[in-house]
Design a binder for these strands. Structure first.
Length: 609
RNA sequence: GCGCCUAUGGUGAAAGGGGAUAUCACACGAGAUUCCGGUUCUCGCGUUGUGGGUUCGAAUCCUGCUAGGCGCGCCA
């Protein structure tokens, strides 16, 4: 049990004598002088007890000091805070408490880039969040399976195919995706100028949907090549997948037919007989719809089967999600793509993929409505548990700052601070471009580092930068800021880890040991670290329950800052024997903690730089 | 038209969903360290869109306004 939990439970037992249902909360004060843990319970109780909060706090303190707690001092401070100073020598940091194995299986879908051109930094944000969530849950002993969805029957691929067939680019490109990036925007500019109609694209889309024709096979080859480039690029950031899922395989295996059968029993799924959606199979998503048929441009029922019989994206997504939960009788066939990656395939073998107890989709907030429709469909088919376990990790999009937009040649406007990326206009920052900039910045900063180290630092810095924002926040991406090598960066964390390792190696060479080191007499800089580390498990639990990886980034940065401050203030090797042991033990604790964090955040553990 | 979200120093981002002088980074200014090899540390500088409300107490809750964004497609 964690310190905070111990204190919370103890206080809960004590306040039972008070009337009222008041939530006991234990927090870590911002200021060290306010103790290592604290509670405001007395001020909360003052309302029901009709008593001075300071007096309530004094009363509670008297009861608390009688308990067996790993506490060496309890202060009561006006207006009614109770501050606890922990006896750190009685806290076991190094115990490996084996958590009860949770048998739940989680299927996480992330990355899922349209196979139409190279990936940009918005795609990278998705992939970093998804991969880190997977690592968090594996850390929490859950069974995790990560999927990368390839929409090879959509307009975007059709556009890229049309562009490849009808336009050229003379820009240098070393990757197929970069070439497609350019011709894709060339095509859209032709559309915009009216020099090309979308008929050709529509025809291409139609042939993709038909299957087994030249365009269809060509599209598959293009999507295969592009998705392979995407996966390879993500691999540089240590982002991995278990399975690639192809949309064409969802169609080919008849998932929708089974899903249709399951939905048919519902009253909210029906064939629309009149109005603009006549002839379509639709699902009712808004219960208000029946009451207001006036405005048909908005809030119409969601079409799942077009009047010409073709499935919409949402229909395929519903079927796909039924499969994710293991609700369909039919399944994909699979084949290995690499040693660690599988892919759905027209020919292959059976494998136990999918069948999740929980499903997490990492998709930006603009897809909230389609996600809602899928959840509604699960409800409609009677799958309440699955609907409840379908979770949408909604994240903000990555836009460009004015500074960066200007660098890309956009016309910036006075007073407008945020500029959207646009694939159609070819406006955006490819991941490869960011890598080049970051690598150069690190090379300038560390001219003597070897190439392997520069590479590792580059990917770490970029990945960390993508993770450290609140998931729901938009990122206003500034290229100068993103390539900083100082401040709250992955580089700072890695240097801190190298610094700790350096001390430990030095101590080992001098035959110094941390055995019998005690935190009983830890001074302030040391206490701050112990206090912070003691909150780790709480941070992980909260990060998982809220699906917020950035809480771990905040924790890591604060730990690194505290350790560097300790480094400046507290000599380790040139200290007294008692201080040596204690501080070496503390350094070991910090090293171990950072290793755990790096495993989750996907950062490399460089012992030297 | 309807619905949803957001607003924090010059810039970017936090603040566990009421509690201690609102934190961090960058920028700008000043200082220290230059070694336990490691890009580090300390200090200063500045502020919660706006009006009203609830409360002992509001960045956090309610509400009006203002500004910005998103969604509602037989697209994906």
């Amino acid at each position: 049990m964690e310190i905070g939990q111990i204190l919370q439970q103890t206080i809960k037992d004590i306040v039972k004598t008070y009337d009222g249902d008041v939530q006991v909360e234990i927090e870590q004060p911002a200021q060290l002088a306010h103790g290592d843990y604290a509670t405001n319970i007395a001020m909360k109780l003052s309302r029901v007890a009709k008593k001075n909060p300071y007096e309530i706090a004094l009363d509670l303190k008297e009861k608390l000091v009688e308990k067996e707690l790993p506490v060496k001092q309890i202060d009561v401070v006006r207006p009614g805070f109770i501050n606890f100073f922990i006896a750190w020598d009685r806290v076991n940091f190094f115990s490996s408490t084996t958590k009860q194995v949770d048998k739940q299986k989680v299927v996480i879908e992330h990355t899922s880039i349209n196979p139409n051109k190279s990936a940009h930094i918005g795609h990278l944000r998705n992939a970093c969040i998804g991969d880190t969530l997977a690592r968090m849950m594996k850390q929490d002993h859950q069974e995790v399976e990560t999927h990368n969805y390839i929409d090879d029957l959509g307009n975007q691929l059709a556009d890229t195919l049309t562009a490849l067939l009808h336009t050229e680019s003379n820009k240098p490109a070393t990757r197929f995706g970069d070439y497609c990036w350019d011709v894709y925007s060339s095509l859209n500019q032709l559309y915009d100028k009216g020099e090309l109609s979308t008929d050709k694209r529509d025809d291409v889309l139609h042939k993709l949907e038909e299957g087994n024709n030249s365009i269809s096979w060509l599209g598959y080859a293009v999507a295969d090549k592009l998705s392979a480039e995407h996966v390879e690029e993500m691999g540089q950031f240590d982002i991995t997948y278990d399975l690639l899922v192809w949309e064409r395989d969802i169609v080919a295996n008849g998932f929708w037919d089974r899903a249709f059968e399951k939905l048919q029993t519902s009253e909210v799924f029906f064939k629309q007989e009149h109005g603009p959606q006549a002839g379509c199979w639709v699902i009712r998503t808004n219960e208000k719809q029946e009451a207001s048929e006036g405005s048909v441009e908005h809030q119409a029922d969601k079409v799942l089967i077009r009047s010409n019989g073709v499935l919409t994206y949402t229909a395929k997504d519903i079927a796909y999600h039924m499969w994710k939960f293991g609700l369909l009788e039919n399944d994909f066939l699979y084949k290995p793509k690499t040693e660690t990656l599988w892919t759905t395939s027209a020919v292959g073998q059976s494998q136990p993929f999918g069948r999740g107890d929980a499903v997490i989709n990492v998709i930006d907030y603009r897809q909230e409505y389609p996600q809602k429709v899928v959840k509604q469909a699960l409800h409609a088919a009677g799958y309440e548990k699955e609907a409840a376990q379908l979770k949408h990790v909604s994240y903000g999009v990555v836009s460009l700052s004015k500074n960066t937009a200007a660098k890309l040649g956009l016309e910036t406007v006075e007073g407008k601070a945020v500029y959207a990326m646009s694939g159609r206009k070819g406006i955006g920052i490819k991941i490869s471009e960011l890598i080049l900039e970051m690598k150069e910045a690190i090379r300038v900063q560390s001219p003597e580092a070897n190439e392997e180290t520069i590479e590792a630092l580059t990917f770490a810095a970029i990945r960390y930068n993508m993770l450290r924002y609140n998931t729901t926040s938009d990122i206003i991406f500034d290229l100068d800021e993103a390539t900083q090598v100082t401040g709250n960066t992955g580089i700072y964390l890695i240097y801190t880890y190298a610094r700790a390792n350096s001390i430990l190696q030095k101590a080992q060479a001098a035959h110094l040991t941390s055995t019998d080191g005690s935190f009983a007499d830890a001074d302030d800089a040391e206490r701050a670290i112990l206090k912070h580390v003691s909150g780790w498990n709480g941070t992980v639990e909260r990060s998982i329950s809220e699906l917020e990886p950035n809480l771990l980034c905040t924790f890591a940065f604060e730990l690194a800052s505290l350790y560097n401050r300790f480094y400046a203030l507290c000599p380790v090797i040139k200290a007294t024997p008692d201080e040596q042991k204690r501080r070496l033990k503390l350094t070991e604790l910090v090293k171990e903690q950072l290793e755990m964090i790096f495993s989750i955040l996907g950062l490399p553990k460089l012992e030297r730089i």
